[in-house]
Simulated assay, not measured.
Amino acid sequence: MIPTAFEYESPGTVEDAVRLLAEGGDDVKVLAGGQSLIPVLKLRLAGPELIVDLGRIDGLRGIREEGDELVIGSMTPHHDVATSGLVRDHAALLAEAAGTVADPQVRHRGTFGGALVHADPAGDLPAPALALGASFEITGPSGARTVAADDFFVDLFTTAVGEDEILTAVRIPKRTGWGAAYEKFVRVSQQWSIVGVAATLRVEGGTIAEARLGLTNMGSTPVRPTAVEQALIGVAPVKDAVEAAVAGVSDGTTPPDDLNGSADYRRHLARVLTQRAVVRGATA
């Protein structure tokens, strides 16, 4: 199908983009990589009067170090995140997860920030961002603010970014030397995750000293099972011991019940994939 007619603006600065959003009101959409927005427009599930394209704002791209954090611009393509030496060295979980997003074409066009703001519960980046303790830099008419990952994902396809605001960067605390693994289950290649598990761990003396986990598609937002993280401390990274420690990983979750799998099936997958992610991540 052909989208409905709309006006198009491609500002060169964040300030100009924010101004256009404020002037556009409820009938404006932000275009980042377009991998989610363009299909929606073609299907006429959305009919904005104005599209604001962020592609000309060079300052929104790139990966850099700032002290104990990595700073990733919101318009940085998934491919750049997946192949960055800085990300592999200091946030290995994010590099691995970004490398599983869709296919090479999408990874070259889709953007890191765009996927996070889209907040699809089956998307592969929100759970790793939550597990890593990311923080999100947001700019709007009132200036810039920073939101922690725990407060960023609000509901299904909803984040803390307001209609007149733009996500400009994501800060990732360095987890240098930590093992990491992202395990997801799909029925066919490049499908959205039926369930995914993000795990990053620090091992000392043959046991897990720290663990951070995130669950994909186990609720309307990514889930961090903190009780299981605590249960893993002091556990040897072997199958039986880890399996016992993560038995309650799906407790309190609200997975969807649809054609791809029942809620109970997803809870089973969460337990299996968590065990695999923890063992692989801790022994990497």
Score class of each variant (00 low, 15 high):
residue 97 A to V: 08
residue 74 S to H: 00
residue 70 L to S: 00
residue 52 V to F: 15
residue 102 A to R: 14
residue 23 E to P: 08
residue 75 M to K: 09
residue 25 G to R: 10
residue 106 V to E: 08
residue 31 L to S: 01
residue 57 I to W: 03
residue 78 H to Y: 15
residue 98 A to C: 15
residue 105 Q to A: 06
residue 81 V to R: 14
residue 73 G to D: 07
residue 56 R to T: 02
residue 61 R to T: 04
residue 36 S to D: 11
residue 99 G to Q: 04
residue 53 D to Y: 08
residue 73 G to R: 04
residue 45 L to A: 08
residue 52 V to C: 09
residue 107 R to K: 10
residue 107 R to W: 12
residue 61 R to W: 02
residue 44 R to W: 12
residue 85 G to V: 01
residue 64 R to P: 00
residue 61 R to I: 01
residue 32 A to W: 04
residue 39 P to C: 10
residue 90 H to N: 11
residue 88 R to P: 00
residue 66 E to A: 01
residue 90 H to M: 01
residue 64 R to K: 11
residue 54 L to I: 05
residue 76 T to M: 08
residue 23 E to H: 14
residue 24 G to C: 08
residue 71 V to R: 01
residue 44 R to N: 11
residue 93 L to N: 04
residue 78 H to F: 14
residue 96 E to S: 06
residue 55 G to N: 14
residue 32 A to S: 09
residue 78 H to G: 05
residue 32 A to H: 03
residue 42 K to N: 15
residue 93 L to P: 03
residue 48 P to V: 09
residue 70 L to H: 01
residue 90 H to W: 02
residue 23 E to V: 15
residue 57 I to G: 02
residue 79 H to V: 11
residue 64 R to C: 00
residue 98 A to N: 12
residue 96 E to L: 07
residue 58 D to W: 08
residue 96 E to C: 04
residue 81 V to F: 09
residue 51 I to H: 03
residue 60 L to T: 02
residue 25 G to F: 11
residue 63 I to H: 00
residue 89 D to F: 04
residue 46 A to W: 07
residue 69 E to V: 08
residue 47 G to Q: 15
residue 63 I to Q: 02
residue 95 A to K: 03
residue 61 R to K: 13
residue 44 R to S: 07
residue 35 Q to P: 01
residue 97 A to S: 15
residue 68 D to P: 04
residue 104 P to I: 12
residue 42 K to E: 12
residue 65 E to V: 05
residue 74 S to Y: 00
residue 43 L to V: 05
residue 75 M to N: 06
residue 79 H to S: 05
residue 75 M to S: 06
residue 61 R to H: 12
residue 99 G to N: 06
residue 74 S to C: 01
residue 71 V to L: 04
residue 53 D to H: 07
residue 36 S to M: 13
residue 57 I to V: 10
residue 72 I to V: 11
residue 63 I to M: 07
residue 35 Q to L: 09
residue 49 E to A: 14
residue 97 A to H: 09
residue 67 G to T: 07
residue 22 A to T: 13
residue 88 R to K: 14
residue 47 G to K: 13
residue 37 L to I: 10
residue 74 S to N: 02
residue 91 A to M: 13
residue 76 T to D: 12
residue 85 G to L: 05
residue 104 P to G: 11
residue 59 G to F: 01
residue 35 Q to K: 06
residue 84 S to E: 00
residue 97 A to D: 10
residue 23 E to K: 15
residue 84 S to C: 01
residue 53 D to C: 10
residue 36 S to E: 13
residue 37 L to F: 14
residue 108 H to G: 02
residue 73 G to Y: 00
residue 71 V to D: 01
residue 80 D to F: 12
residue 33 G to D: 04
residue 65 E to N: 04
residue 41 L to Y: 13
residue 33 G to R: 02
residue 84 S to M: 01
residue 74 S to Q: 02
residue 86 L to G: 04
residue 72 I to G: 00
residue 67 G to H: 04
residue 49 E to P: 05
residue 55 G to S: 12
residue 29 K to Y: 14
residue 50 L to W: 03
residue 26 D to W: 13
residue 22 A to H: 03
residue 101 V to F: 06
residue 34 G to F: 12
residue 46 A to S: 05
residue 95 A to P: 05
residue 76 T to P: 13
residue 103 D to A: 10
residue 53 D to R: 06
residue 43 L to M: 15
residue 101 V to S: 06
residue 70 L to E: 00
residue 35 Q to V: 03
residue 32 A to M: 03
residue 54 L to F: 09
residue 94 L to Q: 13
residue 75 M to R: 07
residue 79 H to Q: 11
residue 95 A to D: 06
residue 32 A to Q: 03
